[in-house]
Design a protein around this nucleic acid. Sequence first.
DNA 1: CTGAAAGCGCTTACAG
DNA 2: CTGAAAGCGCTTACAG
Lengths: 339, 339
Amino acid sequence: MRQITQEDIARKLNVTRITVSKALRDYPDISANMKRRVLETAEEMGYLPNEIAQQLTTRTTKTIGVIVPDLENSFFSHVVNSIIDTATSRGYQVLLAVSRENVELEKKNIRNLIGKRVDGLLVCLSQLTSDPESFDFVRKMEIPLVFFDRAFTDCGFSSVTFDDKQGVSMALDNLVQAGYSKIAHFAGYQTTNIGKERLEGYRLGLMKHGLSTREDWIIEGGYELMDGYRSFMKLGETASFPEIILAVNDRVALGVYKAIAELELAVPDDIGVAGFGFMETVEMFTPPLAIIHQDPREMGRLAADRLIDEIQQLAKPGEKIKLEESFHWNKSILKNKKK
Amino acid sequence: MRQITQEDIARKLNVTRITVSKALRDYPDISANMKRRVLETAEEMGYLPNEIAQQLTTRTTKTIGVIVPDLENSFFSHVVNSIIDTATSRGYQVLLAVSRENVELEKKNIRNLIGKRVDGLLVCLSQLTSDPESFDFVRKMEIPLVFFDRAFTDCGFSSVTFDDKQGVSMALDNLVQAGYSKIAHFAGYQTTNIGKERLEGYRLGLMKHGLSTREDWIIEGGYELMDGYRSFMKLGETASFPEIILAVNDRVALGVYKAIAELELAVPDDIGVAGFGFMETVEMFTPPLAIIHQDPREMGRLAADRLIDEIQQLAKPGEKIKLEESFHWNKSILKNKKK
DNA sequence: CTGAAAGCGCTTACAG
DNA sequence: CTGAAAGCGCTTACAG
């Protein structure tokens, strides 16, 4: 029942527990012979150091806390997978919590993880979080924290986010160059960062190419499949059709596909569709969706590495890291149109 | 820099740290007045109990370790999400590790998690694990463990797995009743449990309905998209075509769809397809795949609840829980065929 | 109602 | 080369 402790090993070898501790950690002032005997006996007895005790003495847990809004979202599960990979390879374990887009649960998670004395925190904010109170607490406790994907930018913490403006701009460059000029945007809520940034990128991109913005081609909606569906139907009521629809995310793009199919139109022959997403997203579409690519693995790796760097004081907090996005043409847009 | 401890609160109130500890845990032998003062001061000073210290004294961490082969697999990410939900609601946190289908890493993860003194372990074995050594160690340490999805069945630990035989049998019942009799199976490797169970279920199911098994309609392959593709092409070489293909998993089914499209055939008009999967799987297919349904949420919930029950000694180890599967007709098979 | 003592399993200066 | 002392922050019988 009782676990094997250093005391047990010590008793067996007729030395003190201090000698055992030192031998196990390979202190230079222990004889090679004693080290060998201690190691052997430890192995024999099935000794496994009690890390809780180590954590209490060393005041470090080699554990990082991760809070994610929803693990059923495959973007996040990819990010978390990559965080775990990175953390493991640097000797850290991951305590994972899910906020379910719930502000109260997010708060609780933060307190719980700090209570468990994680060495640092990796947080993707839930959609509705507006109150930085919990994070003031984190700052007061002087616990390193790095935001990813969704961040407070004025808290003094580092963050790793995508550069949507750059992404949209690059996509538009490609499309315009291929001869397209009629590009609509099914935008997200303008109360959210994502919605705003992407729409702004869209406007700027068009302007840059001297194209005028048609307000009836900007349809603001939500982030779900039915929003894309409804937006497309609304588009049918306007005077003229665009050549391409840029959807604010993959679920909205899926709704667009659905609407298109119902109207017996075809992608990409009748209309092209693009969205934001990553490789797995693409596979869900027939034909494969063109995407402004956001790589969850890169995000996870960078965020975890940054956090661990800050924990080990190899880096200072407060760095805003922006990840570049790339445009992946696929079969949902006719290439080389050249009008 | 230093964290606030009970000692700090005690000093401020001119009492001993024992009184503070008791007040915080609402001991009956502390005056209501003192409790109030302690609570207030704790709040004021931003006191957060050091759970590491608590863990050391109480010898319990309220943490469970979860090992999963691959978090990018959405089945597993759904299971883990559900585990976290259940664990959180019962007051436990989750330390998550990924084995990447790597036996060595799996071993290391187990030792690491036990080193961190988790109260229990939830494990989905990596595909190649055959040596129960690590698990003997777990047993020796008397740490509760529950396997899910992939299990050692002769280790004395509880397990939660799907009843594939029952699932296939139910699917065949439905199909035969609808008038189908020509059903092929694209099986998995017969060296794996999953491959074996599903093929066995298929044979038994056919037999039950007095249908003969055509060996050229059983094509053994792997678990990836290209395996399904190749198997379908191989089928083209046989004398006669089946009406329905039962694929061993979703990726194989996807390969079948691909092959069918290339041969300019259509699902379900020319041939029907079914596979194993869950709701998210279905959405990836056009038309939506018929599935023998394995619910990851149910699996996660049951496994976590079982483990916590065993931790709290509300249940004994060694229970083999089999989850029922249901057959979900979708548009990839013509219903009510009635020949 | 409050406190003194012992302990959880470990580590780390400091002596000898 | 080995060990005695002090400490990490907490809890829990046991006294008074």
